[in-house]
Structure formats: structure tokens, C-alpha cells
């Protein structure tokens, strides 16, 4: 191991695996979205650590991809949370009526 960036890449893989496992195992939707965020962050960490390995400048192409990825992840999270919140709102209003 020539440089220390490899620990980030390995940590990223395992963070992604933790998130994936939690995504599969849990049934609560909110916990799943948190796990999905962790999965995404882990993958991003690994990719960027791979881009920044070795001496010299970092590879900017993965950086651009991950920048895009972060924004798309936020969009997905936002839409999902709006859906979930509206669903709970409807459920609780149904409970009040019955």
C-alpha cells in the first residue's frame, strides 16, 4: 500500500455494504431511506478514493460524476420523503375519521 487513500476506499465499500444490508433487512421506510443514503455515500467515497490515489492530481471525471450523483441522491431522498410524509398524513387523517 503506497498511499493512505486506500483506507477510505475500503471504508467506503464497507459503509456501502452496511447500508445495503440495512436496506434489505428493514421494513420501515424511513430507516430504508437513511440506509440508502449511507449506501450512496459509501459508494461515492470508494469512487473518489480511487480517483485520488497515487501521486499527482486527482482524476476530475469521477469527481464530476459524484457531484451529479450527490444532487440526484438528494432529489430522490426529497421526493421519497414527501411521498412518505403525505402517506402518513393521509393515514392519520383516516384514523381520525374512523
Amino acid at each position: 500500500m503506497t498511499d493512505s487513500t486506500v483506507v477510505y476506499a475500503l471504508a467506503g465499500i464497507w459503509i456501502a455494504m452496511l447500508g445495503l444490508r440495512s436496506l434489505l433487512v428493514n421494513r420501515d421506510h424511513f430507516k430504508r431511506i437513511v440506509a440508502a443514503n449511507l449506501l450512496g455515500s459509501g459508494v461515492f467515497l470508494t469512487l473518489v478514493a480511487l480517483a485520488g490515489r497515487g501521486e499527482g492530481a486527482a482524476d476530475p471525471i469521477p469527481h464530476g460524476m459524484i457531484l451529479t450523483g450527490i444532487v440526484v441522491a438528494v432529489s430522490g431522498t426529497g421526493l421519497f420523503l414527501a411521498l412518505l410524509g403525505r402517506l402518513r398524513e393521509l393515514e392519520s387523517s383516516e384514523e381520525e375519521e374512523t
Binding site: T5, Y8, F44, L45, V48, A49, A51, G52, A58, H63
Partner: peptide
């Protein structure tokens, strides 16, 4: 903070 350590200040 970690992004800084992998040479990605924009990120």
C-alpha cells in the same frame, strides 16, 4: 472532511 483527504475540495 474525508473528501478533503482524498483531494476532492469541490466535493
Amino acid at each position: 472532511l474525508s473528501w478533503l483527504r482524498v483531494q476532492a475540495p469541490d466535493l
